[in-house]
């Protein structure tokens, strides 16, 4: 039986899993759609991991990250609960210790992380603007009737990219529709879109940051060769895409869990076991009437028992809960 560490990254678009062994080798990765039902995504992922390994593995530690990191921690039982910036950086420098810049574009947000001498020194994150994210590209590919997997390769065929206004998702979309109606070639529009996204990213997310090579590009969108090329052209630098670019958050969380357990030798993992996937989890919420803040308080039940609460501004509901 191999000792393993599990990392889970729960975002609004995807829920990712990474399982590593004692030596840090990746044994399994999963990229699942969250589709508005994070609990299902988390329990499904757990089941899939259990099915592929049966009793061959023993989970020695769990780390969670992403906007749903607390939820995942409640369901699975986590030793480390980490923000996604640190998690992404850790995964990246484990594979490329010299990295000085990480560009990350995922389904729901985008970030830039600046490292010097293997340590994060600065970062920025965009969670508001949709134009720079994977969901936006998905949507445009769908509108043009192109499978997202082929998006990048088609864009690479372009000789004469169309200029698309990329300042915001709404503009970009209407500009594209316009260009399409004017009869521009699909590959030129796609390439134009890649360039617009990259310009938008550099002007907003990366504003004021000093991008130095080695530059690593990760997150779901790194699969898109058109975007990679657009970055290379715009920055005039080589761009590295790590092997597990689409699950770097989860991988980082797993690595952090492994480190944490190594530091705390006597600690026992909080992992709730694969049975956790078969328990009944429900999330509910209510509006607290305690004061005019009217907080939306989230409650998580496991097998009918209340186990966690959050969302209250004053601590009135969450104070007596563990998470």
């Amino acid at each position: 039986m191999t000792g393993c560490y599990l990392g889970i990254d729960v975002g609004s678009v995807s829920t990712n899993f990474a399982l590593i062994d004692e030596n840090g080798n990746l044994l399994k990765k999963l990229y699942l759609r969250t589709a508005g039902r994070p609990i299902e995504a988390i329990t499904n992922g757990l089941k899939m991991i259990q099915e592929s390994f049966e009793d061959d593995i023993k989970i020695m530690g769990v780390g969670t990250t992403g906007s749903g990191r607390k939820l995942a921690a409640v369901i699975v039982g986590a030793d480390v609960i980490k923000n996604e910036i640190t998690a992404h950086a850790v995964a990246c420098i484990t594979e490329y210790p010299d990295t000085r810049t990480i560009l990350e574009i995922g389904g729901q947000d985008s970030k830039i992380i600046i490292l010097r001498d293997g340590v994060v020194v600065d970062f920025a994150m965009n969670t508001v603007c949709a134009a720079g994210t994977g969901s936006f590209l998905d949507r445009q590919a769908q509108r043009l009737g192109i499978p997202i997997e082929r998006f990048g390769d088609i864009a690479l065929m372009s000789q004469n990219p169309t200029r698309i206004a990329g300042r915001c998702a709404v503009f970009a979309e209407s500009d594209m529709i316009h260009k399409q109606q004017m009869g521009y070639k699909v590959e030129d529009i796609l390439k134009g879109l890649c360039q617009a996204l990259v310009r938008n990213y550099l002007a907003n997310v990366a504003k004021g940051k000093e991008i130095k090579s080695p530059v690593v590009f990760q997150g779901g969108v790194a699969a898109n060769t058109g975007i990679k090329r657009a970055f290379e052209e715009e920055l005039g630098m080589e761009i590295i895409i790590p092997r597990y670019f689409d699950v770097m958050g989860a991988l980082g969380a797993a690595i952090l869990a492994k480190k944490f357990m190594a530091q705390n030798k006597r600690a026992k993992t909080k992992f709730a076991g694969f049975e956790a996937a078969f328990r009944e989890h429900t999330a509910g919420s209510f509006e607290c009437q305690g004061c005019p803040n009217l907080c939306e308080v989230v409650q998580i039940y496991v097998d009918g028992k209340l186990v966690a609460r959050w969302g209250d501004r004053c601590g009135r509901w969450s104070a007596d809960m563990a998470v």
């Binding site: 906007s67 980490k82 923000n83 996604e84 910036i85 640190t86 947000d109 994060v120 970062f123 994150m125 969670t127």
Partner: peptide, 8 residues
């Protein structure tokens, strides 16, 4: 997102 930035 605010908390994430703060924690990082």
């Amino acid at each position: 997102g605010f908390n994430t930035r703060l924690e990082a």
